[in-house]
Simulated scan of single mutants.
Amino acid sequence: MLQAVSHGAPENTLDSSAKEDSPASLEAFLAGIGTRAFRFAEVGLRQRDDALDAVQDAMMKMLAYQDRPASEWTPLFWSILRRRIIDMQRRRRFRLTWLSAEPQHEDGGTIEWADDGPDPSRTHDGREGYAHLAAALGGLPTRQREAFTLRVLEELDVATTARAMGCSEGAVKTHLSRAREALQRKLEDWR
């Protein structure tokens, strides 16, 4: 089930199966959303292994909802994954507080992607661009990062994003607006 996630190669285009209104099965839905879910979790958790665990846990929890209509799978999956990421962040903070006398900073290591492009300079530019975007997204407050990722990168509509985030549509619009402004400021220097 995690095959699409574990190879770590970037997608140049979005999976068509993830964009269909009704995938053939829950397995097809999960296979189509796996890589994007991993990226979302990796930005939130900043550690590859934790991101893989979070996505796998969310996918396992989705199996309990396979009898639900396919139209409910997308917001339900993103909501489950988001809550799993928040739980993992809380546990990490709790462990750091109790296990260390000094606060520790997350390492923020670089994200390496497999070189599958025919043009090395284009591949390098793509990796560099993604690394800058991931770093800028990682610097946003959680709700802004979630709103941006779900609305812009996942192309969910406002209502679906609001259901996934557990907030109002107005809150989604506010978080998204603030995220866009912050990302624009952060990414202006990179261009």
Rank of each mutant, 00 (worst) to 15 (best):
F77W: 13
I111T: 04
R122D: 01
Y65T: 10
W78A: 09
T97Q: 08
M88C: 02
E128Y: 02
G126T: 13
D67W: 04
R127S: 10
G108M: 06
H124N: 05
A101S: 08
P69H: 04
G139L: 06
R92P: 10
P118M: 14
G129D: 10
R92D: 14
S100I: 00
T74K: 11
R95S: 02
P69Q: 09
H105G: 09
P120H: 06
G109A: 15
S121V: 14
G138T: 08
E106V: 09
I111K: 03
P103R: 12
I85N: 13
P118K: 09
D119T: 01
I80G: 03
R95C: 05
S79L: 11
D87R: 15
G129C: 03
L76P: 04
I86T: 13
A135P: 05
Q104T: 04
D67N: 07
P75L: 11
D119M: 02
W113I: 13
P120R: 06
P103D: 10
R82Q: 11
G117F: 06
D125R: 03
T74W: 02
G129P: 07
A70T: 08
H124S: 02
S121T: 15
H132Q: 15
I85T: 11
D116K: 12
S71T: 15
E72Y: 06
A70K: 12
A114Y: 00
G117N: 00
G129E: 09
F77G: 05
R68I: 00
S79Q: 14
H105A: 12
A134K: 03
P103C: 03
R93P: 04
L96W: 05
Y65M: 06
R90P: 02
L81S: 12
A114M: 06
G129W: 04
R68V: 01
R68F: 08
H105S: 13
L99K: 08
T74N: 01
Q66K: 12
S121L: 15
W73C: 09
A135H: 13
R122L: 09
E72V: 10
E112F: 11
L137A: 00
T123Y: 02
D87I: 10
G126Q: 15
L137P: 03
D87S: 13
S121N: 13
Q66E: 13
E106R: 05
R68W: 12
A64I: 01
A131P: 00
W78Q: 10
H132T: 04
A114R: 05
T97R: 13
A136Q: 08
R95K: 09
R92N: 14
G108T: 10
G139R: 15
L99E: 15
Q66M: 08
A134R: 07
A131K: 10
G117R: 04
R127W: 05
R93A: 13
G139N: 14
P103F: 04
L133D: 02
P118T: 04
I86L: 14
T110W: 00
R92I: 02
R92M: 10
